[in-house]
Design a binder for these strands. Structure first.
Lengths: 255, 255
DNA sequence: TAGTGGTCTAGACCACCTC
DNA sequence: AGGTGGTCTAGACCACTAC
């Protein structure tokens, strides 16, 4: 018999009860001292067990309130349809999507000139440290922090499309603005990764322990070379990404 | 001044030193008692700080050995080229990919008949609990657990392609086998999500705290309806996914 | 055997929330 | 005021690894 440490027994028992529905999403767990009595363990041991469930993303805690079972509501982003030039959108694709879902979008925005970080330079196929423009969005849905989006444009492109470097929104959307200047994106290369948030990301997205981030890096190509690289950082618990490949012809409307 | 708790100061100081390269990937951190002296904190406080870094995926620990800075080596899977029927592969696409990368693939395999779980049934557009076949792979690369892959086929399909339900590999590959029986996949619908692993997943993939999983759900469509649903569970620290959209014509060879 | 991390306890004090 | 979780300590014993 493989005896588990007591704090794991606590975590396993509570996890089972959560899975069973004994504590449905949004419900409060018994207090630490109650659990301490129930499991005949010290408060610290119970805390270790609860902490396990927190880092698994199952529950969250707040001072003075207690532990609560997390509820998940996910937003699905169809990355293969997003910003499709064949179906041009007016303005920002994100706002459109969120509004269509009956939610209220909100975002803060800033523009920076900076030397391209190494990773970005590799995507844009320019030298590390070369001039680049960063357009940065911090996005909320119904006032919940949802994602951050950093788009980098290579310096050479800015000479052809100077408004990229100007602060403030581009009303018709940057994709449309570039297309109007003869620079159209004919393809994308996407990379999707996941990891735990850095403290900075945890702060911006207001996520605690147990919630990973989903990183979406999209590099847009013109006929000849990369013209932009967009890194979107999502809260992993609230977002999923979809891609359609081949001829699906709307067989997936309800998904 | 916003005073941080001591265990956070410990975590922040060590994180900074790791980021600086003072402790490069693979390096060992000082022992808990050394850190305890350095930070004038009790061993438990130091442990809280170290535990933060563990749940961030930055370091890992093992009994008797100490704490070690994690190193990351990622495998990129091109999901938009994977299993492309225009470029038919002999046998298993996964083994081919891994071998091409100069690594040694290894997998265990099993087949089950079972009632379709609710989520799967939704993808396959059959009733929950309807008969389904599960073909399950547990995959390793150089003996490191890499991913699990569960493919579900609807019961009605098995009547046309009975070998799906037989245990043991299908030498020519299931996609090819189905195509030879007049059932060809004309499109896919992919969904990508991330979360912390369940204890079961953590066991199969041998991941500790601080490493999320990447969930890739691919539903394959024939001309008329879904014919399979594949859920691949990756270690998030070792895998990234790529998609090409539009006409890239090999502009990305080196990525 | 010595040193490492892993588990567990008992108790103290603090910060936050609700009433 | 009373209950909740958050932080911290000091010390005990165990399990694993190295030599």
């Amino acid at each position: 018999m493989n005896k588990q440490p007591k704090y794991r027994q606590v975590a396993d028992a509570l996890r089972r009860e959560i899975d069973n529905g004994a504590y449905p999403p949004g419900a409060r767990l018994p207090s630490e001292s109650e659990l301490s009595a129930r499991f005949a363990a010290s408060r610290n041991t119970v805390r270790s067990g609860l902490n396990l469930l927190v880092t698994e993303g199952l529950i969250s805690s707040s001072q003075g309130l207690g532990y609560e079972v997390r509820s998940h509501e996910v937003f699905k982003l169809n990355a293969s349809r997003f910003e499709n030039l064949s179906f041009p959108q007016n303005g920002d694709a994100y706002s459109t999507d969120v509004t269509n879902a009956g939610r209220r979008p909100h975002q803060t925005f800033r523009v920076e000139m900076l030397p391209a970080p190494e990773e970005i330079a590799a995507w844009l196929k320019v030298e590390a440290g070369a001039k680049a423009v960063l357009r940065f969005c911090h996005r909320y849905v119904d006032d919940v922090p949802w994602s951050t989006q950093a788009t980098y444009y290579p310096g050479w492109l800015v000479e052809q499309a100077p408004r990229l470097a100007e602060p403030g929104d581009i009303a018709e959307g940057t994709t449309r603005y570039l297309a109007d200047h003869g620079i159209s994106q004919i393809g994308y290369f996407d990379e999707i990764a996941t990891r735990m948030p850095t403290p900075e990301e945890a702060r911006l997205l207001e996520i605690g322990a147990g919630v990973p981030v989903l990183l979406w890096t999209r590099t847009g190509y013109s006929d000849e070379k990369p013209i932009r690289c967009t890194i979107t950082t999502f809260r992993g618990d609230l977002n999923r990404m979809n891609y359609e490949i081949g001829d699906l012809a709307g067989r997936n409307e309800d998904l």
